[in-house]
Design a binder for these strands. Structure first.
Lengths: 199, 199
DNA sequence: CCATAACGTTTACACTGTAAAATATACGAC
DNA sequence: GTCGTATATTTTACAGTGTAAACGTTATGG
């Protein structure tokens, strides 16, 4: 079976397969477990082949992040459209946020928890902002309806950081102080209502 | 100048010096910049000497974390005693929290942002909880005065995660969406009052 | 058919943490 | 003092990492 020269489609095919495989490995093992060698093994090729299709590990990693942000943004968008009115929309967005972080903790980590923030990459900021934009739109609507007063962008950031703080500490196990695991889990799941969080 | 045999005191001296140097390097360069070799270079010894005084890199790192938690807890304690009444105490604790995170961002990162959470070590949980305990005590007092209602531990966790979310996103530069840097910086510095954060 | 370009692997280098071996130093007994 | 032994430290070495460079192999255009 002679090999075919790679057409432009094949390049994209390999890149896509590599990103998908890397995403799966990240989800299963976490960030530092995915090396160029382990990824190559999973792809069934030599470690250096990846370097013909990606600038370096950072680029591949950036694409994995973009993919994660895309999934996240899609789910935020769906939640946004499920919301009935500003307050319900904010709640739906928050639930979708928590659901994503709980379902894909490693993805959440490389999106929001990794410090320092990895290098920028074309498309990353766009997709990242898209995930945030629905919260911003909901915050604008909420201000318009008099639910909050102030700068919608600032309010959106506050709402975001509020949820991020809970999710982040919960996912990394730092909320466990005593032994009442169920209570602590419910902190996130039965998260404080917006009324309680912001008057 | 012949070398002296190390007495028990000298062991502790070296360990302390190593932890202090590592702490300084972490503060200057961040987590992954401090290697056993670079630390040894800063200490003026061979890389392997450190292994006679520490089990491995993780132990030394754990001690750096404990030290950071100790400084943090001390500052929380001071803020706690500066507070006049429950509400002011909560504000003082929050200000001290933000001040610490801003002054020692790398220390904050290894304390609260690193995922997965590094291995446990004797004394770490104690010092870590001590830093949290003042917020818990203030939350108890606040509940007793009718400022909040509910489980004080849960309320303390909510207040913590609230501040952590803001600090975390701010320090990692993720709050920067538009170009109004001053506004965004003030989100953390002129942080929302407790009244605004929790009704 | 062959030169050339494209593709992939192998090799190699500078890093990392750290185990093992080699070396240097100090100390107690004679 | 001198030697044996214990201790302290360094040197060497190994298995990892990302990746640059060299090498071989395959496909393609003239």
């Amino acid at each position: 079976m002679p090999r075919q020269a790679l057409t432009h489609e094949d390049i994209e095919t390999f890149r896509q397969r590599a990103v998908e495989t890397a995403t799966r490995l990240y989800a299963e093992e976490g960030y530092e477990a995915v090396t160029m060698r382990s990824l190559a093994h999973a792809l069934g090729c030599s470690p250096m082949k990846t370097y013909r299709y990606f600038e370096n590990r950072d680029e591949l990693f950036a694409l994995v992040r973009i993919d994660a942000f895309r999934r996240f943004a899609d789910e935020q968008e769906a939640a946004f459209h499920r919301g009935k009115g500003p307050r319900d929309t904010l709640l739906k967005l928050k639930e979708a946020y928590i659901a994503f972080a709980t379902r894909e903790p490693h993805a959440y980590a490389i999106m929001f928890q990794l410090t320092p923030v990895p290098q920028d990459y074309p498309g990353l900021n766009e997709e990242s902002f898209r995930g945030f934009s629905f919260l911003l739109r909901a915050a604008r609507a909420a201000v318009k309806e008099g639910l909050f007063e102030g700068d919608p962008l600032t309010i959106a950031h506050l709402l975001w950081s509020n949820t991020h703080g809970l999710v982040s500490l919960h996912l990394s196990g730092r909320l466990i102080v005593g032994r009442n695991l169920e209570t602590l889990a419910s902190i996130v799941l039965d998260a404080p209502t917006l009324k309680e969080t912001q008057s």
